[in-house]
Design a binder for these strands. Structure first.
Lengths: 127, 127
DNA sequence: TGCACCAATCGCCATATAGCGATAGAGTAA
DNA sequence: TTACTCTATCGCTATATGGCGATTGGTGCA
């Protein structure tokens, strides 16, 4: 890996194939609703697996699996405490990502709505 | 803060399940290396499918399919020109997303390396 | 020790999708 | 028209992964 250079940010443009694959994996880690829910639930406070299982209304096995994914990519941190495992947000900047996406989505939907309103009494075209 | 203060950006915290699913889809659209390559190739200029196929060294069918995905989520725009279809970036802010991810990844790797360096004389693990 | 609880992992199934070759369809030039 | 080019789509296979129930492993308590 010839990855010296800037400490905190290589622009996407300069990424080689391997690094680009890592970026893709990073996005993939955020591409599951349940994982986003977990991040949401951890926004203000650390929680253990049982609490998350109850909050998210799904199986404990699933929560554990998704927490493992989030941990692997550095989104959350694990702290053992008795027989429990508490997870907390490791890097709050992940919310910047999500909020940025929300903003772009909102604008995308708005422009789509505008386009539909402007051009189409016969909607459905524009494929 | 349950108010929607900002017009164009609902914070992730306030999203209901459906919207959260959309955010996840958005991230998923960016979770394929080939799609990121396409966005990279379109960073400075519009290109048609044939050009992209050659640049990315993969099948034309794949390029078309991925372009359809990127179009569906509003990342690129299609312009027919003769028998060709030219694609260009629709919202340059997607690069903000990618660069943000790159920065977070870099920091993540750095802290991992530091952790390994502190605890492990056997380097090479790096991941 | 034995029991109770919690979390992580295993095996399995169902689904989604990236990739491929082949083909259809639209546009252009002869 | 016919022939050619370019793109989009179809059918298919292989792979990845989310979800589930069951199990294992670890910790604390009686």
């Amino acid at each position: 890996m010839n990855d010296r250079s800037n400490r905190d940010c290589l622009p996407l443009k300069a990424l080689d194939d391997r690094a680009l694959g890592h970026v893709a994996e990073y996005f993939r880690a955020l591409s599951e609703p349940l994982r986003l829910k977990i991040l949401n639930a951890l926004r203000d406070e650390a929680r253990n697996v049982g609490e998350l299982t109850e909050l998210l209304n799904c199986s404990q096995a699933n929560v554990s699996k998704h927490l493992a994914t989030l941990t692997r990519y550095g989104f959350v941190e694990r702290t053992a405490q008795g027989t429990s495992a508490y997870y907390k947000i490791a890097d709050p900047r992940v919310y910047q990502l999500c909020d940025l996406v929300c903003g772009q989505m909102a604008q995308h939907f708005a422009s789509q709505a505008q386009m539909l309103g402007a051009t189409a009494p016969t909607a459905r075209a524009r494929r």
